[in-house]
Amino acid sequence: MNQKSEETVENSFGTRFKIALKNLGIGIVFVIAGLFLLWHNESKILDREIRIAQAESILSENQETTTDQKENETTEDSNLSKATLFNWVLRIAGWVILFLGLATLFKPLVVLVEKIPLLGNFVGRGITVFALLSSLSLSLILVSAVWMVARPVYGAVLLLLGIVPLLILYRSGKRARLKQALKQT
């Protein structure tokens, strides 16, 4: 009976590992889809912002504001708020897709070490945190690259915000290596 349970555990490990390896392609597709969604959405937003700014500058030079224009501005403001909400939904969706893709890419590593009692749980959570912070960083850096074209200050702020999660990852890894070196001495 003990041998049968060991075979079942071994078989389930092999099955889980094969599934994790097969899902690597899905992870890559998710990463590419998340990056594309973020890039495409931000490019469209930037294009719209540039066109609106150009139209406003032309209109302000040619005409005075009338009551009809004020009514049109209130309608445009409500449409703009709906578009802004939709853009934020697309940004968050792109980030979530990117996070899921990165988490899926590292799933084979989690399956490999989950047999080790304490290390398996630790590695699983560590990879989740790594995927979360790196997807956040990638998203912010990608969005900042798009916005550097039209609004360099806004793009620079986003770039700095994108570098912060990378610094957190780097410092946490450096701290772990320092603790390990202290234990060895």
Rank of each mutant, 00 (worst) to 15 (best):
T75H: 12
A131F: 06
W88R: 05
A20T: 00
Q184S: 08
L118C: 08
I168A: 06
T65F: 13
L142M: 07
L133V: 01
F36M: 13
F30C: 08
V96I: 15
S43E: 08
E64W: 05
A20D: 07
N62E: 12
K183I: 01
T66D: 03
T15E: 15
G155M: 04
I26E: 04
R16M: 13
L118R: 12
A181W: 13
L109Y: 15
L119V: 02
G173W: 09
W88Q: 14
A156G: 11
A83F: 06
R177H: 05
T104W: 09
L109E: 05
I28N: 04
F122I: 14
A83T: 09
R151E: 15
A103M: 00
P165S: 01
A33Y: 08
T185P: 10
E42S: 10
W39E: 03
A181S: 01
L182D: 09
L105S: 00
N121H: 08
G34I: 01
M1N: 03
K70E: 15
E7C: 02
K18C: 06
S134W: 13
L160T: 02
N41S: 13
N11M: 12
I163D: 15
I58S: 06
L119T: 09
L46C: 03
D68N: 13
S57T: 03
F99C: 07
E49L: 10
F17V: 00
M1A: 11
L138D: 09
N41H: 00
E49T: 11
T67D: 15
G101Q: 05
L167R: 01
N11E: 11
I26V: 13
N11R: 15
A20E: 07
T15Y: 13
K107G: 00
S5E: 11
L98T: 11
I52V: 09
A93M: 14
L105A: 00
N41G: 06
E61P: 01
F13S: 15
V89E: 12
L169F: 06
V157R: 11
I92H: 06
V31C: 05
F30W: 11
S134L: 08
N62Y: 15
N41F: 04
V153T: 12
S135K: 07
Q3N: 02
P108W: 14
L161P: 11
N62T: 04
I168E: 00
S134E: 13
S172M: 02
K4P: 00
T67A: 15
A53M: 11
V110G: 11
G14C: 12
V110W: 04
L112M: 10
Q54C: 01
S5H: 05
A33L: 12
R125M: 05
G34S: 09
E76Q: 10
V123G: 04
V9P: 03
